[in-house]
Computed example of a mutant assay.
Amino acid sequence: MPAPAKTPRNKHGRKPGRGLRPWLLIPKILCFCLLVGSLAALGLLCLRQVLMPESINIDPYPEIVPAQTYLDLTGQIEQLVKYLIIPSATLTIFFGILLLIDAPRIFIKLRWLQIKTLLVIITLPLLHITTRIVYEGYATVLHSNLQQMDLAVSNDLVLAVPLIDTWVADSLDRYLLLLGTISLLGVIALAAIILIGRLKPKLWQNWAKAYPRK
């Protein structure tokens, strides 16, 4: 009868397994990917309206433009922000904080993590503020134009088929172009954050020299 295999002895004092860290890391990655994908969808949705109007059955050179097209786009933008972008960003921050407090004394000293955290602190609030300002300007121009036309709007349902002038449509398109550009720049910034977290560059930090084992 063969002798039973010996269990390797733990010589380095490391705890078996990784605890809850994988269970926190996986949902954080999924939420972050959802955030990046939602921002990319928002940017492409806005830019398609401006750069490819024929793809949504709009005459590129009209005299008047149906306002319902912009109203539909408003609803799509609000749904993206309310149901995808804000929840995914909130959950990403939540899981990131849980991962940080798993071993804060070690993580807080890592230079790459300091840079990554700083980028997150700058990028997400700046992205939120700029997109909100641009979107509010877009919504103000659209709804003020509808009010000038004395359209009855109640319970988010337009009771007429409004048409807007081309100069109003041009103004709306400029807001959409800016909103789409900001969203795609946010995607690039988040991709840089992903790259830093994946590569974990030392950034001229010698861990063994800076923090010798006592």
Score class of each variant (00 low, 15 high):
residue 33 C to H: 11
residue 34 L to P: 02
residue 35 L to V: 03
residue 35 L to E: 08
residue 36 V to K: 06
residue 36 V to C: 10
residue 37 G to L: 03
residue 37 G to D: 02
residue 40 A to S: 11
residue 40 A to I: 04
residue 40 A to C: 08
residue 41 A to P: 01
residue 43 G to Q: 06
residue 45 L to Q: 07
residue 48 R to F: 08
residue 50 V to S: 07
residue 51 L to K: 07
residue 52 M to D: 13
residue 52 M to W: 12
residue 53 P to A: 05
residue 54 E to C: 08
residue 54 E to I: 07
residue 56 I to H: 12
residue 57 N to T: 11
residue 58 I to W: 10
residue 58 I to N: 12
residue 58 I to K: 11
residue 59 D to S: 05
residue 59 D to Q: 04
residue 60 P to Q: 03
residue 60 P to H: 01
residue 61 Y to E: 15
residue 61 Y to C: 14
residue 61 Y to L: 14
residue 61 Y to W: 13
residue 61 Y to N: 15
residue 61 Y to S: 15
residue 62 P to W: 01
residue 63 E to G: 14
residue 63 E to T: 14
residue 65 V to H: 10
residue 65 V to E: 13
residue 66 P to G: 00
residue 68 Q to K: 15
residue 68 Q to R: 15
residue 69 T to C: 05
residue 69 T to Y: 07
residue 70 Y to L: 04
residue 70 Y to R: 09
residue 71 L to F: 05
residue 71 L to H: 13
residue 71 L to N: 13
residue 71 L to A: 10
residue 71 L to R: 07
residue 72 D to R: 15
residue 73 L to W: 07
residue 73 L to C: 02
residue 75 G to A: 03
residue 76 Q to F: 13
residue 77 I to Y: 01
residue 77 I to D: 04
residue 77 I to P: 06
residue 78 E to D: 15
residue 78 E to K: 15
residue 78 E to T: 14
residue 78 E to G: 12
residue 79 Q to F: 11
residue 80 L to F: 04
residue 81 V to S: 04
residue 85 I to G: 08
residue 86 I to H: 12
residue 86 I to R: 14
residue 87 P to C: 04
residue 87 P to V: 04
residue 89 A to M: 03
residue 89 A to V: 08
residue 89 A to Y: 01
residue 90 T to S: 08
residue 92 T to V: 08
residue 92 T to M: 05
residue 93 I to F: 09
residue 93 I to L: 12
residue 94 F to G: 09
residue 94 F to K: 10
residue 94 F to P: 07
residue 95 F to G: 00
residue 95 F to A: 00
residue 96 G to H: 00
residue 96 G to F: 01
residue 97 I to S: 06
residue 99 L to R: 02
residue 99 L to C: 03
residue 99 L to A: 02
residue 99 L to E: 02
residue 100 L to E: 06
residue 101 I to F: 05
residue 101 I to P: 02
residue 102 D to G: 02
residue 102 D to Y: 06
